[in-house]
Design a protein around this nucleic acid. Structure first.
Lengths: 237, 237
DNA sequence: CTAATAGTGTCTGTCAGACAATATACC
DNA sequence: GGTATATTGTCTGACAGACACTATTAG
């Protein structure tokens, strides 16, 4: 950005925004996918996304695309930039650079997105990663899942997967599903409470289907966890 | 990216690439800055960068700008994407989106970059962060420094700051300078050797100016450190 | 009561930092 | 020898996982 002038020697590039929207549904990590209706990769599954508008911020573009393409009008509980993908041949039609965002939502009880507009649907992440996706969306999705896995360790991202009130078991299930292995309920409980500002206890309890009723919690003020909830190799003595 | 067509309703956006090139010189973390010669922010310091070419990959653009603007023709020891900055008003001339990269080099003995072309110079990071910079380069630099600080913990990034052969003290000084506080030499030594594949011992030794000669090491195969070299609050018993 | 889930307590191994001790160079 | 730096060793506290134990509900 130092001393270069704007001339036609720099042909413009199309900037798009794509969103990896993750949630935990049915004990599985799922991602919102849309089916492409037009030419390249017609019929393939793709991440929701589209062209950046001239005067909108990148994150606003991500939120707008999510709204437009999925009929989903909830603000994601978490939205962060994931990375920018700009291989010269990633779109056969023109040079495009895609700014990818990672978004997280709790599993919504009623409105399954995509019932209205385009064919947007929740799909299991594992299946999508074993699948051919449009453009370089396989790499973008893989980056999103990797980011979510590692951010569970050292940030309070997990609370974005659950509702405003949650039990320890619900929070633990987020970790188990995203990491793909079970956690010790007792140790998890102790670690979460020991992590400064991660969760705050509420007054109510919630009777599950069976067993002792669980205390409920709400997200605390912490964004970075201290100490972190580390994903460790199991202890082999 | 699902089902939208390319029309003029999507005005093009200029895509630039900016680079935060860090090194450790004179016991300080320094960053390569160029002085702007043209209109907006003329005379201000800016990160090296420029327009993305039509057919080049993003990382290639970062390497090219580094070469062109600094007369530096060494391949950076480390280059990774930092993030994309695209606030609608970040450049008063036109809508630009900048893909920022973080690059790391060892302190080069002889060729001070910028002696030839533009006025490129190493500047202490602390001074730059207390300084007004062109565009949103203050935020980009801050992101780069934060990324470097945290990546020292869990990746082998530190080896990119030192030469192909280094002593434990040299490696330790990288951590001390980037983190801004001293480390215990003995504990550091033990932790680095205990981190699988971080460094590999070489046959030679190196006699410093004073004291017992130090063993030299070269970078190992590990990219992610296991266990990590954690930056911890000091122990208060 | 039994089963199931929530939550607490305890044991033990690992590993961090603090710091002492030893090794080996230059002066 | 004296000093400076490198390297190794030791002690102790924090904390993780493993797992036993208690608490409280539904059926």
């Amino acid at each position: 950005m130092a001393g270069t002038s704007y001339t036609s020697e720099f042909p413009p590039v199309y900037v798009t925004v794509d969103v990896v929207l993750l949630t935990v549904r049915d004990e599985r990590l799922q991602v919102l996918m849309v089916e492409r209706g037009s030419k390249p990769w017609r019929g393939s599954l793709a991440l929701p996304g589209g062209f950046l508008r001239q005067t909108e911020d990148l994150a606003d573009g991500a939120r707008r695309e999510l709204r437009e393409e999925t009929g989903l009008d909830v603000e994601p509980a978490h939205l962060e930039q994931l990375g920018t993908f700009g291989a010269p041949d990633r779109d056969p039609r023109a040079r495009t650079v895609s700014v990818a965002y990672l978004a997280v939502l709790p599993a919504l009880p009623s409105p399954v997105p995509g019932t209205d507009a385009a064919g947007a649907n929740w799909e299991p992440v594992d299946a999508m990663l074993a699948h051919d996706l449009a453009f370089d969306h396989h790499a973008i999705l893989a980056a999103g899942v990797a980011r979510a896995r590692s951010k569970l360790e050292y940030t309070s991202l997990a609370t974005a997967f659950v509702g405003p009130r949650f039990t320890m078991a619900e929070l633990r299930r987020v970790y188990e599903v995203v990491w793909g292995h079970p956690l010790d309920p007792g140790n998890f409980h102790r670690k979460v409470l020991g992590s400064q500002g991660f969760v705050r206890r509420t007054a109510d309890e919630r009777a599950g289907t069976r067993g002792r009723p669980a205390a409920t919690y709400e997200p605390g003020d912490a964004i970075v966890l201290n100490p972190p909830i580390l994903q460790r190799p199991p202890h082999v003595p």
